[in-house]
Amino acid sequence: MGSERRKYDVLIAGGGIVGCYVAYFLKQRAPAIEVAVVEPDATYEYASTVRASGGARRLFSCPENIEMSNFSIERIRHFAAEMAVGNEPAPIDWVEQGYLFIVAGDAAMRMLEENARVQQSLGADVRMLDRDGLRSLLPSMHVDDLDGGAWSPGDGWCDPNGFLQGTRRKVKSLGVEFIQDRVSGFVLNNGRISAAALGGGGVIEADHFVNAAGAWSAQVSAMAGMALPVSPLRRFEHYFTGHRQIEPLPYVKDLQRLAFRSEGRGFSGGLVNSNEPRGFNFDVDHRYFDEVVWPALAHRFPTAFGGVKCHRTWSGLYEQCELDGNPIIGTWTGNHENFYVAAGFSGHGMMHAPAAGRAIAELIDAGRFETIDLGRLGYERVMKNEPYRERGIL
């Protein structure tokens, strides 16, 4: 995966799902464009996508996130055919069993209803359910302490590793070059970045540079003098089975960050600790499931999870945007404007990668957002310290 070329039109730091989709849409817009992706680990052992839950949903409050989901979910639905190479499809096992956000309290219900109106106005199929509606949808769920929820039946989940590997295979077939190395610095020249230094030695010139390094994106931006408020946040995913069978579940999520779904004969999910110390920590705490996750599961689905067996626990990293939990997508206005960032997705990178990749490709090729206006997700809000947060959505 070494490179013989020393000059490209676009150099992308980070070969995860976001970086791959930037490369894909650049090639869709301009097939002759020369694109290189610098990725240090060809196995993707610690990549966030392969350790993710694979969920994709429209249940957001910010219009930009809803619109990115609308676009991205359609690409995921048709991924097997769109990302086929020759006659070989790219299956990712899309499961369309919906998402369900559950809440308690009048204020939380009003918030869900307001969010639902925005979602519906942008074409999302979102249905509000009261307590009886929840009980009808999921008879095994304890609902006496809930007031209702928002259900989006067209949402679902996929195999995240298949999603990443299929995208990577497709962009390689389009002529994108992958360089197994790490960006170790940038060469600045007259207000622009002219080249990137690689950890293994050598310098690669390019006209445009993209930071899609995920949990490592703050380090990449710092090499250009850009302070990016993105930190690695460890979270656990668990595969578990209950002691009794229940109805197939959508992706169930509450405001305490319990989130889980059906997975084959069992279930996959977890409960994110927002106060987890930041850092590149992949250690697994096997007590966490018994002490934190199981009690929440047993309360919500006592029939199934009064007894439960956790078969596997693994850790992964959110690229947490510490400003507001929303991604940073765009250029550094007034500084090195040939440097683009697509990072800080805070757990939503896989589901929004197609839309984010298209957005960066538009900026590079046309100098502006042409489809979804993501201006409010730009770096300007970081410079002004003006958070743009989701309402009641994690």
Rank of each mutant, 00 (worst) to 15 (best):
C20Y: 07
C20H: 05
C20W: 03
Y21D: 04
Y21A: 03
Y21M: 13
Y21Q: 14
Y21K: 02
V22M: 08
V22W: 05
V22H: 05
V22I: 12
A23F: 02
A23C: 09
A23R: 01
A23L: 07
Y24I: 06
Y24N: 06
Y24L: 03
Y24S: 00
F25Q: 00
F25A: 01
F25Y: 14
F25K: 00
L26P: 04
L26F: 03
L26D: 04
L26K: 03
L26N: 08
L26T: 06
L26M: 11
K27E: 03
K27Y: 05
Q28N: 12
Q28A: 07
Q28H: 13
R29Q: 12
R29N: 12
R29F: 15
R29M: 10
R29P: 11
A30C: 09
A30V: 05
A30W: 03
A30P: 08
P31E: 02
P31L: 00
P31Y: 03
A32I: 11
A32M: 14
A32S: 15
A32W: 04
A32N: 15
A32P: 06
I33R: 00
I33F: 03
I33C: 05
I33T: 03
I33V: 11
E34N: 15
E34P: 02
E34A: 14
V35C: 10
V35W: 00
A36G: 04
A36Y: 02
A36R: 05
A36K: 02
V37Y: 06
V37I: 11
V38F: 08
V38D: 01
V38C: 10
V38M: 12
V38Y: 11
E39I: 06
E39Q: 11
P40K: 15
P40N: 06
P40M: 13
D41C: 13
D41I: 15
D41W: 14
D41L: 12
A42K: 08
A42L: 10
A42W: 07
A42I: 10
T43F: 13
T43C: 14
T43W: 15
T43M: 15
T43E: 15
Y44S: 06
Y44Q: 13
E45A: 13
E45W: 14
E45H: 13
E45L: 15
E45K: 14
Y46R: 13
Y46F: 12
Y46T: 10
Y46M: 07
Y46Q: 12
A47T: 07
A47R: 01
A47F: 07
A47S: 08
A47G: 10
S48V: 04
S48F: 12
T49R: 04
T49D: 04
T49K: 03
T49L: 03
V50M: 04
V50R: 01
R51T: 07
R51P: 14
R51S: 09
R51A: 10
R51M: 11
R51H: 12
R51V: 11
R51K: 14
A52E: 01
A52H: 07
A52D: 09
A52P: 07
S53A: 14
S53P: 10
S53I: 08
S53Y: 13
G54T: 05
G54W: 01
G54C: 00
G54F: 09
G55N: 07
G55C: 12
G55V: 07
G55K: 00
G55F: 09
G55M: 12
A56S: 12
R57D: 05
R57T: 08
R57Q: 06
R57C: 10
R58N: 08
R58I: 05
L59H: 04
L59R: 04
L59I: 15
L59C: 11
L59V: 13
L59S: 11
